[in-house]
């Protein structure tokens, strides 16, 4: 960082460092990323809304209860939720520069994310085998679209985590300075929270009678 353009505003005595000046005291990337997450909420709200709008409206089967295995999906859900825990640890360790532990936690998070995606691919293949297609009925159209977009978010998150690990090892990003890992964590937790909503709305509600 360059020396501040040491300037004091009219009537101000403290040295004003314009490169570090942030009106809200928050990092720009973090602020922009929160805005993005807010925006992505509307994206998922629209998809979930579409799912709800068409829930129970399929003219032909297979219907949700014909294909769902809540046990299998509960396992993958558990794995994804636990990955939020390791993600939080990764951010925590990176703050205090515990590099080995940070890398381990980042890789563990990525691995759990990948496991979730693998479960989803298995689930899609299984459902397809059972006759549930993207085109066959409204349930198929809405289910694959909603969970597919969520799965894509998770997959991109895994790529991001792996890239972050690589950059972290290379020393391009740091945890004690800057917020690259923290922002990756924000994304990861967001994707997790969205899944909690999807799991409830799509899977659990089918078993509420």
């Amino acid at each position: 960082m360059s020396a501040a353009s040491a300037s004091s505003g009219a009537g101000h005595d403290e040295v004003f460092d314009e490169h570090h000046w942030r009106s809200l005291g928050v990092d720009n990337v973090k602020l922009a990323f929160w805005t993005f997450l807010g925006s992505d909420c509307f994206f998922f709200a629209s998809l979930i809304g579409t799912y709800m709008y068409y829930r129970g409206q399929s003219l032909v089967g297979p219907y949700p209860l014909d294909v769902f295995s809540v046990e299998v999906t509960s396992i993958s859900t558990f794995v994804l939720l636990m990955s939020s825990f390791t993600m939080a640890l990764a951010v925590l360790f990176s703050k205090t520069n515990r590099r080995g532990a940070t890398v381990a936690m980042l890789l563990a998070t990525a691995a759990m994310g990948a496991t979730f995606v693998a479960f989803q691919m298995y689930e899609f293949a299984h459902f397809f085998h059972e006759g549930l297609t993207l085109q066959g009925n409204l349930f198929g159209s809405t289910f694959y679209t909603l969970t597919g977009f969520h799965g894509t978010h998770v997959a991109l998150g895994v790529l991001w985590l792996l890239a972050s690990t690589f950059w972290y090892v290379k020393g391009w990003i740091r945890g004690d300075e800057g917020i690259a890992i923290e922002v990756a964590g924000l994304y990861w937790h967001f994707v997790d929270i969205v899944w909690i909503v999807i799991f409830t709305v799509v899977y659990l509600m089918e078993f509420v009678r």
Binding site: F42, S46, Y54, Q135, S141, T145
Partner: peptide
């Protein structure tokens, strides 16, 4: 806040046109 919603609307329409989904097609519900 508003563009994500039309993005979803457009994606569903794209899926209807490209992949044969049923979001806006009344005969299939």
């Amino acid at each position: 806040m508003s563009f994500p919603m039309i993005t979803v609307g457009l994606l569903l329409m794209l899926f209807d046109r490209s992949f044969g989904t049923n979001f806006y097609f009344p005969p299939n519900g």
